[in-house]
Amino acid sequence: MENLSEKHLKVSAIKNGTVLDHIPAEQLFRVLDILKLRDCKNQITIGFNLDSKQYGKKGIIKIAEKFFEDDELNYIALIAPKATVNIIKDFVVVEKKLLSIPESVIGAIKCANPVCVTNHEKIQTSFRTTVKDGEVLLKCHFCEKSTSNKEIQIVTNNR
């Protein structure tokens, strides 16, 4: 068990909950959306544009008293595959989750095809994923078009 030493913490620590780290800064808000955190009532601390050796600028999200299902967390792999997920209990990292690309993605993202039926009727989207040259392709169950993970849009309740 590693103890989070004070000097590395630019964002205040949480006692219990989930820490999402190493998110490329530009993906931070999409990670919030894909986990539907805009509607979440828990205490959330967000670090944005923090210095990172890996990305230049990174984002970090700490959600107090919240523990996700693996299926939910794996959606993060679509937009931030190198993100890390730490489960915190009593200020200590008790588990590091490994993200893997989900085989199917239901409801969380929009089809990029503007003339897809899912963008015009109230239909839950559904995709199968394939990985090609490090890029994740999501094939729409309905219109059969593929969306690259680089251009995916998250379904938010604001729309």
Binding site: V115, F142, E144
Partner: peptide, 28 residues
């Protein structure tokens, strides 16, 4: 036949009878 792509697939999943796609946009 429907101008939106995927409309026939969607219809086939909610219809109680067989659906024949006579064209869904530029898809099939």
């Amino acid at each position: 036949r429907h101008p939106l792509e995927g409309a026939s697939r969607y219809a086939s999943e909610i219809a109680s009878v067989p659906v024949v796609n006579a064209g869904d946009g530029a898809n099939q």
